Simulated assay, not measured.
Amino acid sequence: MTEPGTILKERYRLERLLGEGGTAQVWLATDERMGRQVAIKILRPQYAKDEGLLERFRREARIVAHLDSPYIVQVYDVEMSEGISFIVMEYIDGQDLKELIRFEGAMPPQRALSLLRDIAMGVAVAHEAGLIHRDLKPGNVLISKQGEVKVTDFGIARDMAGAGLTEPGKVWGTSHYIAPEQAMGRPLTPAADIYSLGVLLFELLTGKLPFPGDDPVAVAIAHIQEPPPDIQTLKPSLPAGVARLVSRMMSKAPEQRPQTARALVEIVTRFLEDSGDVTT
């Protein structure tokens, strides 16, 4: 049973619910042994006997535990207590990028590109470890009150070197940010994450999604078949170089995008460091 005051493993005291998804809840907790606040991701009880989900849950902890970056939420431990499976993570006192976009709306290019570079820094570490995130979206980016940017939720990340990067009959990811090849269930490369970051950059710059809608299938089909809206029509003041970057990142053909997050970091850094000029 999970409620405020519950103590897991005689160590972690649950304080309050921070958020929840289809398969898990995230709680703010106090690590009474270390004297610090942590975030605890708890698998919902109805999924505790689902070996597939349980393994995916454990994989997330193993994956992130090996990723050393200030741009990725740190994992401290993975545990089971009285039938409850949970991951103990770094607690970020702040908000997610989805909330920030809702509050700020369309952002100036410098602001949007700075956020993108920090996100890409975290994703680059995953790519260099042979991993593809597969679910990059504003809700999976946390921003602390000090402005630190952290990528989280590697629950559906996949090993590039593993046997097959797709699962027959299953398409993981969030339709508003999904790469065309991912929506079609094809094998993925890091360029799939670049597409998702392109959608995210589009949203940061315009305050809008390129393919809005409530029907996830229709949205996924739009990513596969339709060109994204002309971002300069939506934001005429946007420098041409930034518009070209968005277009390149959201290319339907994976080989036409920057191939890794590290390559994207280098591109964005050049934009930002060219005397503040983002017009090239």
Score class of each variant (00 low, 15 high):
169 G>C: 11
169 G>V: 06
174 T>D: 06
174 T>L: 03
174 T>C: 11
174 T>K: 08
174 T>W: 05
176 H>W: 13
176 H>A: 15
176 H>E: 15
178 I>A: 12
178 I>S: 10
178 I>L: 15
180 P>Y: 12
181 E>M: 08
182 Q>D: 11
183 A>K: 12
183 A>I: 11
184 M>T: 12
186 R>C: 06
189 T>Y: 09
193 D>C: 06
193 D>P: 04
193 D>T: 05
193 D>K: 05
194 I>V: 15
194 I>A: 02
194 I>L: 14
196 S>F: 00
198 G>V: 03
198 G>T: 08
199 V>T: 06
200 L>E: 00
201 L>K: 07
201 L>A: 07
203 E>V: 03
203 E>S: 10
203 E>F: 01
203 E>K: 12
204 L>F: 06
206 T>H: 09
208 K>G: 02
209 L>P: 03
209 L>W: 02
209 L>A: 10
213 G>I: 07
216 P>V: 09
216 P>Y: 08
218 A>F: 01
221 I>C: 07
222 A>C: 02
226 E>A: 12
226 E>F: 00
227 P>C: 10
228 P>M: 13
229 P>K: 10
229 P>M: 11
230 D>T: 04
230 D>P: 00
232 Q>A: 12
232 Q>E: 14
234 L>K: 06
234 L>Q: 11
234 L>S: 07
236 P>V: 06
237 S>V: 07
237 S>P: 00
238 L>I: 07
238 L>W: 02
240 A>S: 14
241 G>D: 10
244 R>Y: 06
245 L>K: 10
245 L>H: 10
246 V>S: 02
246 V>C: 11
249 M>Q: 06
250 M>H: 04
251 S>Q: 04
252 K>M: 02
252 K>F: 00
253 A>F: 01
255 E>T: 09
258 P>D: 05
259 Q>M: 05
259 Q>P: 00
260 T>V: 05
260 T>L: 02
260 T>H: 00
261 A>E: 00
262 R>P: 01
264 L>G: 01
266 E>H: 06
267 I>L: 13
268 V>P: 04
268 V>M: 05
268 V>A: 08
269 T>V: 05
270 R>I: 03
271 F>G: 08
271 F>I: 10
272 L>A: 09
272 L>C: 07
272 L>T: 09
272 L>I: 11
274 D>C: 08
275 S>H: 14
275 S>N: 15
276 G>T: 10
279 T>W: 13
279 T>Q: 14
280 T>W: 15
280 T>N: 14
